[in-house]
Write a protein that binds this DNA or RNA. Structure first.
Ligand SMILES: [Zn+2]
Ligand SMILES: [Zn+2]
Ligand SMILES: [Zn+2]
Ligand SMILES: [Zn+2]
Lengths: 165, 165
DNA sequence: CTGTAAATGTTATAACATAACAATGGCGAG
DNA sequence: CTCGCCATTGTTATGTTATAACATTTACAG
């Protein structure tokens, strides 16, 4: 069982102790919400758990159908409100190019992520890189543009889906 | 009247000779399609013109309603097919975070753009930066990820919407 | 307790996108 | 020329993603 903390293993979605990912994510979320005096209600918590069930981005309506199975009829606003809350708290990220949501592994820190999305297996790894951040900030400054938020999603093939070469 | 070729004026959507932008874009599109032996049919050409009416990304249904006004009832597939064609030919880009489309100023060259999107005026400037490209490629390589396509959209305030400071 | 604000439930609809099949039209082989 | 093919366009229906608007319930401070 490999150690998920190693960034390059973010991709290795089937061969790590994902229970640990979930457990850690939920514990961090609890602590964070407590410290911020915001309420991680059962509904919100459950949505977060569902999103964390894998490292694959998950659509709002996937979450919705899971909730409906578990708890009887559920309407879209229930899910979207939870997603909105989780986004505000930085507990999840939205993948714009997939209209889907994925858990954030570093919700406590302010950060601009970069997502490497495998078009083969569908997994999405959030990574960070100072050189990229710097290059974007520098370019924006050159043009007199004040950046506030950004989306950076790279689609391609992850190491696990390209065992050879 | 300023010269649009200057990159930093990409933002200056109201104060440049935009007729020239349109004219150039359409001429380049014609030439490119001819050289590739693909057909820039009247419908496709008109959609491209509508997208080029400004430097603001425009939604598929905005295009649709314009077409309906001009040509009578038009259905969504008409627009989406044209958009698909224009994307394939690199004549437009899709802005994922807005579900909208914008003309490409450099359709002849293979390129990965970076969009600076002003949340105040709504304009979107496509810029390119070798340092950013390089940083992303390097990071991906480090992780064993083979990048194929990417989305990079930065939201913030453009120079025109922040005259002071 | 009770008033109030946050959270959730409910219904309806908006906004974005594609599937499936029919009809038309450009264009080269014969 | 004209036939046949394939790209293009038309048409209808539906799928997918997201929000508006208002009612009801719940947490919890005072
Ligand atoms: Zn995991
Ligand atoms: Zn994150
Ligand atoms: Zn212009
Ligand atoms: Zn471009």
């Amino acid at each position: 069982m490999k150690n998920f903390d190693t960034v390059s293993l973010s991709f290795d979605t089937n061969n790590h102790d994902h229970g640990r990912c979930i457990h850690t994510a939920m514990k961090v979320a609890d602590k964070l919400c407590l410290s911020r005096s915001v309420r991680l209600t059962p509904a919100r918590r459950r949505v977060l758990e569902l999103i964390w069930e894998s490292h694959h981005p998950v659509g709002a309506y996937d979450v919705l159908s899971r909730l409906s199975q578990e708890s009887g009829k559920t309407a879209p606003p229930t899910v979207y409100r939870a997603l909105e809350f989780l986004m505000e708290q930085g507990l999840i990220h939205r993948i714009e190019s997939l209209n889907a949501y994925v858990g954030c592994a570093h919700p406590a820190e302010e950060h601009a992520g970069l997502f490497l999305i495998c078009t083969d297996c569908g997994c999405a790894a959030e990574v960070h890189d100072e050189a990229i951040d710097q290059a974007i900030v520098t370019k924006a400054a050159t043009l007199g543009f004040r950046p506030e938020q950004r989306t950076l999603e790279v689609r391609g093939t992850c190491p696990d889906c390209r065992p050879n070469t």
